Computed example of a mutant assay.
Amino acid sequence: MTDLHQQIADLEADIDALSDVAERCRKSMIVAKVAIVGGFLVFGATLFGMIWSDPVALLVGIAATLVGIVFYGSSRSTREQIAGKIKLCEARRAEMIDGMSLRAMEPH
């Protein structure tokens, strides 16, 4: 019985660790969105002459937008994979708990 308890505890630790990674992915997605918007604004402002027209500023705007898009997609994909792993661990944990011979305690 102790082995089963340890397996459940290990699964819970795995779920917590995966949840932390998923949260970091979510934060990375926010940073990526900021990079996309910032890059697009720099690109647009340079293109329409709102800021000094410099090829470097134009390239920085384009690069920031593209890097943000790639980073967002990568973080989102990783987060979806982690969510799937979390669901599998939670299902395994539920099966283990259901398989235990637990008795209901009667109130005194």
Rank of each mutant, 00 (worst) to 15 (best):
V67N: 03
M1E: 06
A91K: 15
R92K: 15
V37K: 00
T46A: 07
A83P: 05
E90F: 02
M1P: 07
R24C: 05
C25A: 11
R93L: 12
I51Y: 00
R92G: 11
G73S: 15
D10I: 05
T78D: 09
I69H: 05
Y72A: 01
G68D: 01
E12W: 01
V56Q: 10
I69P: 00
K87F: 11
S53F: 07
G39F: 11
V42N: 02
G38C: 05
V31G: 00
E12R: 15
L18C: 01
E95H: 03
A32P: 01
Q81H: 03
K85M: 13
T46H: 03
S77I: 06
H5S: 11
K85H: 11
M1K: 03
T65Y: 01
I30V: 10
T78M: 12
A91T: 15
V31M: 01
L58V: 05
V37A: 03
D54M: 08
G73W: 14
R26L: 11
I8M: 05
D16A: 14
Y72E: 13
G84L: 08
S28K: 07
D14A: 09
D16T: 12
C89T: 10
G44V: 04
A63C: 09
G39A: 02
K33M: 06
G39N: 04
A94L: 04
C25F: 05
S75F: 08
T78V: 10
A13L: 12
R79E: 10
A45G: 05
R26P: 02
L88V: 15
G99N: 10
R103H: 12
M96R: 15
L18N: 03
V70Y: 11
L66W: 06
E106V: 15
D54R: 11
L41F: 09
T46S: 14
E80S: 14
C89G: 08
L58A: 04
S19D: 07
L102C: 05
A13G: 02
S28N: 09
A91F: 13
R92C: 10
H5P: 00
R24S: 06
E90Y: 03
C25Y: 02
I36G: 00
G39W: 08
G68Y: 01
A104W: 07
S28C: 05
H5C: 09
F71A: 15
R26Y: 13
E106A: 14
S101F: 04
G61W: 05
A22I: 04
A35S: 14
A104N: 12
A91M: 15
V42S: 01
S53L: 08
V60E: 02
F71Y: 09
A104Q: 11
I51D: 00
H108S: 13
R103V: 13
R103L: 14
V56A: 12
Q6Y: 07
L102R: 14
M50G: 06
R93T: 12
M96N: 02
A45M: 13
C25I: 07
L66M: 12
S53M: 09
A94P: 02
V70M: 10
I36K: 06
A17D: 03
V21F: 02
G49Y: 01
G38E: 07
S77Y: 12
V67R: 00
W52M: 03
H5Y: 10
S28F: 03
S19W: 02
E80G: 05
D14V: 03
G49E: 06
E90R: 08
D98H: 08
A63I: 14
G68F: 03
V37M: 01
R92F: 11
R92L: 13
